[in-house]
Design a protein around this nucleic acid. Structure first.
Lengths: 168, 168
DNA sequence: ATCATTGCAAAAGATTTGCAAGGTC
DNA sequence: GACCTTGCAAATCTTTTGCAATGAT
C-alpha cells in the first residue's frame, strides 16, 4: 500500500501518543508496549496501510518486543480508530488505514493500476454532501468518496508499453 | 438489505435477459436455468441486495430447480456485473449489488441505523469528480460516493425512543 | 460430442474470539 | 491483587476454487 504526501498536518495540542493515553485512561484501559510501539510506528510517517503491510513492516523493526501477534495488531488498530487516531475504509475487501488525528479531512483518488492512493481536499464536496443530505432529511455522520482511475505515471508507463508492443 | 425507489429507469432496447444472452453468446458461454431464474428474480424489483439475502429469497421461491448452490449464486452475480447488468460495491465487508443496466448513474445515502440505502443523482458531483481528476492528471474510470448518517425515519424513531426513556 | 455450468465440499483470505499466561495500574 | 492485554490457535465470515456430474449447443 503506497502513499502520497499532499496535505499538511493540522495544528494539534497533543501528540498521538498523548491523545491515546487520554483515551485509554478515560475508559479504564491500559497502555502497553505493543500499543506504544504500534502508535510510534504508525505515526512515524504519513501513508496508507493495511494490517498485513503493517505486520510485515513490524517484522523488520528489530523489536524490543519479541513479536506482536496478528490479533494484537488488529485489536490495536481498532482501538486507534475508536480513539480517533486513525480512519479506515475498505479497498478490495481489506481494511486500509490512514492518519485521522492531526490531519485534515480529505478524499481519495485510487489508481487501479499501481494501487496507490492520492489525497485531495474539496470544500465544494462537503457543501454538496450536506445539501444532498438536507434534501433527504439525513443527519450526516460521514462519507466515503473514492475516485478510481489510472494515475499520471501509470498512463505514461502504459503508453511506453504500448509503443514497445507496437514495435514488435 | 432494503431499498428506496427514487430514480426512474432509463429507456433500453433490450431486456436484461436479452442483454445477458447477447453477452453470453459473444463469449461462447451458455444460458442455463439457474442463470435465467436469477436474472428474473433480480430484475423483478429494483433494490439493493447481497449474496446472502439473495440466497434466502431463493429458498422461498418454489424452485422449478431444486436448489441453487451458493457457488452458483456468486459466480452468476459476477457474470452479471461483468455483463454490465449489475453494479456492486462493498458495505461493511460484504458485496452489495444493484441494477446497473437500464438505470441511471447515481450515488447513495446509507442509514447506519436501519442499514437502508437511498439513491440520489448529482450532475454537480460528476463535474467535481472530473475536475479533481483533471487536476491530478487522472484518467477516471469510476467513483464511489456514499454518504452515511441517520435517515429521517430513524431520527424520528430515536426521538420517540428518547421521549419514552425520559418518561421513565 | 464438446465443453461450459452446477453443486458440493474444501480452500482461501481477512478479521475476530476464547483462553491461559503475562503485564499494568 | 485485580483485571486488561497478549499471543496463539481455533473460529467466523464471505467469497472462491477443484472436481466429478450434468446440461447446453
Amino acid at each position: 500500500m503506497s502513499q502520497s504526501f499532499s496535505l499538511d498536518p493540522v495544528e494539534v495540542a497533543l501528540s498521538p501518543l498523548q491523545r491515546f493515553e487520554e483515551y485509554l485512561q478515560s475508559r479504564g484501559m491500559r497502555m502497553t508496549k505493543p500499543q506504544r510501539l504500534l502508535i510510534e510506528h504508525v505515526f512515524s510517517r504519513h501513508d496508507h496501510f493495511d494490517a498485513d503491510t503493517l505486520m510485515d513492516q513490524l517484522k523488520g523493526e528489530v523489536g524490543e518486543i519479541g513479536r506482536i501477534g496478528r490479533a494484537t495488531v488488529y485489536r490495536t488498530l481498532n482501538k486507534f480508530v475508536e480513539a480517533g487516531l486513525l480512519r479506515s475504509f475498505t479497498l478490495d475487501g481489506r481494511a486500509v488505514y490512514e492518519h485521522d488525528y492531526g490531519y485534515p479531512q480529505h478524499d481519495h483518488l485510487h489508481c487501479t493500476k499501481c494501487q496507490r492512493l492520492f489525497e485531495f481536499q474539496s470544500e465544494e464536496l462537503l457543501t454538496l454532501r450536506d445539501a444532498v443530505a438536507r434534501e433527504h432529511r439525513f443527519r450526516v455522520t460521514g462519507h466515503r468518496f473514492i475516485i478510481s482511475g489510472i494515475c499520471d505515471e501509470c498512463q505514461r508507463n502504459r503508453r511506453r508499453e504500448k509503443r514497445k508492443h507496437d514495435m514488435i
